[in-house]
Simulated scan of single mutants.
Amino acid sequence: MRLIGLTGSIGMGKSTTAAMFREHGVPVYDADAAVHDLYDVGGAAVGPVGEAFPGVVQGGAVDRELLRQRVLGDPEALKRLNAIVHPLVGQDRLGFFAEAQAKGADLVVLDIPLLYETGGDARMDAVVVVSAPARMQRERVLARPGMTPDRFDAILAQQMADAEKRARAHYVVDTGQGLDHARAQVADIVKALRDAPRREVPAGAAPVEDGAKPGH
């Protein structure tokens, strides 16, 4: 079973791309969704996060906006939070792996927003980066309820630049040219990965002009 990392900066269309992998029968692990569950009522992170950041638990669940305000721009606070959440996500991910393996999956996709920033790419067999033009990215994000230009810029400051992600990726899915174009790129990537020998990244298997860039 080969591990495929799926990542991309905010507003690039990563969730939509993840759904396209599912259309090909590839199980997708959504790290953000796992964290949402951990923060929800009864979630394993509620207690320890509440102790580390008093006041962020409201109604038995972690208020993500309050927590965001506590850690944004504070590397030490973010480090404390990650020390709580990452091991819990790791446990949840092991269950996902076991289920996928039991079903005979040949590929699994790990949808991880900060894959490069956390060094998680080192554990992947290949990494797919989702990208779009900066203007389109900004328009998408600022259309979200409650989003402001300052908040968007603060989020971008915590993420690796899109150009660097693209340079380090084995494949790039360009969502700036419509869903059909992106879906065709995903189909090419899935085929290339399934045709490749185990534990070997299929360099050059999908054409650059279709947005799937060979690895480095």
Results as ranks from 00 to 15, higher is better:
66 L>I: 07
66 L>E: 08
67 L>Q: 12
70 R>G: 15
71 V>N: 06
72 L>P: 04
73 G>W: 07
73 G>M: 10
74 D>S: 00
75 P>F: 08
76 E>D: 14
78 L>C: 10
78 L>I: 06
79 K>M: 15
82 N>F: 12
83 A>S: 14
83 A>W: 14
85 V>G: 00
85 V>W: 03
86 H>S: 15
87 P>A: 13
88 L>F: 09
91 Q>P: 05
91 Q>M: 14
92 D>E: 07
97 F>P: 00
98 A>L: 01
99 E>Q: 00
100 A>C: 00
105 A>Q: 01
105 A>M: 04
107 L>S: 13
108 V>C: 00
108 V>W: 00
111 D>L: 03
117 E>C: 07
117 E>T: 13
118 T>P: 07
118 T>H: 09
120 G>D: 07
120 G>A: 13
121 D>I: 02
122 A>N: 03
123 R>P: 02
123 R>E: 15
126 A>C: 03
128 V>N: 09
130 V>D: 08
131 S>Q: 13
132 A>F: 05
134 A>D: 12
138 R>A: 06
141 V>A: 13
143 A>G: 15
143 A>Q: 11
148 T>I: 02
151 R>Y: 11
151 R>T: 10
152 F>A: 04
153 D>C: 01
156 L>K: 15
156 L>T: 09
157 A>L: 09
157 A>T: 14
160 M>I: 11
161 A>E: 03
161 A>Q: 04
164 E>Y: 04
166 R>Y: 05
167 A>E: 14
167 A>N: 14
168 R>Q: 13
170 H>Q: 14
170 H>E: 12
173 V>W: 05
173 V>F: 09
174 D>L: 14
175 T>D: 01
176 G>T: 01
177 Q>W: 03
179 L>G: 03
180 D>Q: 06
181 H>D: 02
182 A>R: 09
184 A>M: 02
186 V>A: 11
187 A>N: 06
188 D>T: 07
188 D>G: 05
190 V>C: 04
191 K>M: 00
194 R>S: 10
194 R>N: 06
197 P>H: 11
198 R>W: 04
199 R>E: 09
200 E>P: 02
201 V>M: 07
201 V>E: 07
202 P>Q: 05
204 G>V: 06
206 A>T: 03
206 A>Q: 04
208 V>W: 13
208 V>H: 10
